[in-house]
Each structure stands twice: as structure tokens, then as C-alpha cells.
Design a protein around this nucleic acid. Structure first.
Length: 290
DNA sequence: ACAGGATCCTGGGGGC
DNA sequence: TGCCCCCAGGATCCTG
């Protein structure tokens, strides 16, 4: 399940493998992706040199030399890799870009077809579009006000962290890991969360994601990097996928619940919900001491 | 307005 | 052994 660390790993791999290379042919499979690749884009992509590869949230942006772009999302099972053309094409490969002399290819493979590969011409402002639907990157969250959008909310912290408009790039695994690192319950509501706790969450997000990037991400089922290598952060996960196993911090059994439509793993002992959400109104005034 | 749920999609695993 | 059913979760659309 590619989230920010996995997408970042793919982008770093591909940057080395793709920059300076030209697209000489494009082939698309029959089966349609949810947002399908259009063959009408092929003549616009052929002949273009790849100038850069970058990431915004979970989106991959491939910059072409006429200021047009490819925008790729890996969905749940997407793989974007550079392979020798002689290597057999695996099943579920949906779009293939032949590079340079045709000896190697950029391949997009996606078993569940939740991902997409799209082309945007130079006149389309891709950054405006991405910035409109995505919140800041985790390390650009401002400690003073990153929480203003959600700290009055009745939504639970799990749903808040999954919301890409609040912070871009977090998915189910790292939402659970960050909340465990912050020692906060995924069930706790935004409005029950103190400023100090909000800061703990922000720091935990950054810390967990940086460690995951250093480990090339988490490979549980399909995820591989742009060079085909797996990640190894799955060995460092503290709660995700550890149902009924002891919490590494306190030894209590990790529980799984369904929150925001997603399986949610947490420690019921060291990730407690705040006892009360905010001081109640109409509280009886304390007697004045004179 | 806001929050939660349904939807798409396939391979793998559990139960019988 | 084989079949059926359910589960995994990204973004997006729908419902209460």
C-alpha cells in the first residue's frame, strides 16, 4: 500500500533511472484503469525527454521537456519500475513507455487497478491542481496552526490523519504508526485534542515517515521501489499488522477496530482516549476565596 | 456543513 | 480438493 515513504522511494529510484531519457513509444493494455490512460496522449508524449521526477503527497509527477507532465498514482497495488525490454512483461501491466533506444522501459503495473497514469499538457497548471486538493507535506506543517482546521472537529484522529487536505501523504499504515508514536488513541476526537497533543502528533508523523523513508518504505503485499527493490520498514512497525501481539512499549495486546472505514491498530493501554473532551460549559462557578 | 459509508478491483486466505 | 465468501484500502461519490 504505497503511502508517502513508498512513493518517495519510487521517485528517488526513478529520478536516477529516468532523467535525461526520451520516450520513443507508448503501449497501453486493454483493461481500463479507473482513470484510464488515453491513446490520444501518445503522440504528445513520444519524443519528449524526461527532465525530472518528483512527488506531491502520494502523487508522482514526471516532468517532460516541453513543460507537460505525466501524473501517476499507485493506488493500492501500483508498481512503477524501469525494466529491460527483454524482461518478460508481468500480468497486470497497463502502460509501458519505451525509452531511448528501446532497450529499457518504464512500466506501470497495478493488480487492483486503483491507480492511474495521466498526461497533462504544458498549459495545465499541475501544481495549482495538486495544491488545491492536498494539504502541506508533513515537514511543512506549521506547528502554530496546522491544527486549526480540525481541532474543533468531532472526527476521530484516525480520520483526520487520513484526510489528504489536512496533511498530504499519510495512509492507513502510517496513520496508525504515528498515533502510536504520539501515544494518542485513534478514536480520540479532534476537539478532545490539546495543543500539546497536536504538536506530539505532528512530530510523530515526521519522525515515523523519516524512518520509513530511510528503510525504503513498507513492503507488505505488492509494493516495490522504482528499481524493483522491496522496502523493509515492515520489520519496524509497532502496531500495524500486529493484532493481539504485545505492545512494544507496555506489553498490552494490540487491538484492531474499524475506524473511518479502515482497519485501525492501537494499544488500548498506552494510547488512551482523553477522559473528557474540553471543559464543560455551564460548569458551576467555584466559590471565590477571599 | 459535516461525518461516515459505499464504491471500485483482484488475489489470497479461511471455513466448510 | 474445490468452492464460496470476505478482506485489504487509495480516492471519490453518495447519504443521512
Amino acid at each position: 500500500m504505497p503511502e508517502l515513504p513508498e512513493v518517495e522511494t519510487v521517485v528517488r529510484d526513478l529520478r536516477v533511472l529516468l532523467c535525461g531519457r526520451s520516450v520513443v513509444a507508448v503501449n497501453a493494455g486493454r483493461r481500463k484503469l479507473r482513470q484510464p490512460w488515453k491513446n490520444a496522449w501518445i503522440p504528445r508524449v513520444i519524443g519528449r525527454q524526461i527532465d525530472g521526477v518528483r512527488r506531491r503527497g502520494k502523487w508522482i509527477v514526471v516532468e517532460l521537456d516541453d513543460q507537460s507532465h505525466l501524473l501517476i498514482h499507485l493506488g493500492m497495488t501500483g508498481q512503477l519500475t524501469v525494466r529491460a525490454t527483454s524482461e518478460p512483461r508481468e500480468p497486470h501491466t497497463h502502460v509501458v513507455f519505451d525509452l531511448d533506444d528501446g532497450s529499457c522501459q518504464l512500466r506501470f503495473r497495478d493488480v487492483r487497478r486503483f491507480g492511474s497514469v495521466r498526461y497533462f499538457p504544458a498549459e495545465f497548471d499541475i501544481d495549482y491542481c495538486l495544491n488545491k486538493q492536498l494539504g502541506p507535506e508533513p515537514w511543512e506543517l506549521e506547528p502554530e496552526n496546522w491544527h486549526v482546521g480540525w481541532r474543533q472537529s468531532r472526527r476521530c484522529l484516525k480520520a483526520i490523519l487520513l484526510d489528504q487536505t489536512i496533511v498530504a501523504g499519510i495512509g492507513n499504515i502510517y496513520a496508525d504508526e504515528a498515533l502510536h508514536a504520539a501515544r494518542l488513541s485513534p478514536r480520540q476526537t479532534g476537539r478532545a485534542t490539546s495543543l500539546a497533543q497536536a504538536e506530539r502528533i505532528r512530530l510523530a508523523i515526521v519522525e515515523v515517515l523519516e524512518r520509513a523513508i530511510a528503510a525504503r518504505g513498507t513492503s507488505i503485499s505488492d509494493y516495490i521501489g522504482g528499481s524493483g527493490l522491496r522496502g523493509h520498514f515492515q520489520g519496524q512497525l509497532q502496531v500495524y499488522g500486529r493484532a493481539a501481539l504485545p505492545c512494544v512499549r507496555c506489553g498490552s495486546a494490540i487491538v484492531v477496530v474499524r475506524l473511518a472505514g479502515r482497519s485501525t491498530h492501537y494499544c488500548p493501554t498506552c494510547q488512551r482516549t482523553a477522559a473528557k473532551s474540553r471543559p464543560r460549559r455551564n460548569r458551576r462557578a467555584l466559590p471565590q476565596h477571599k
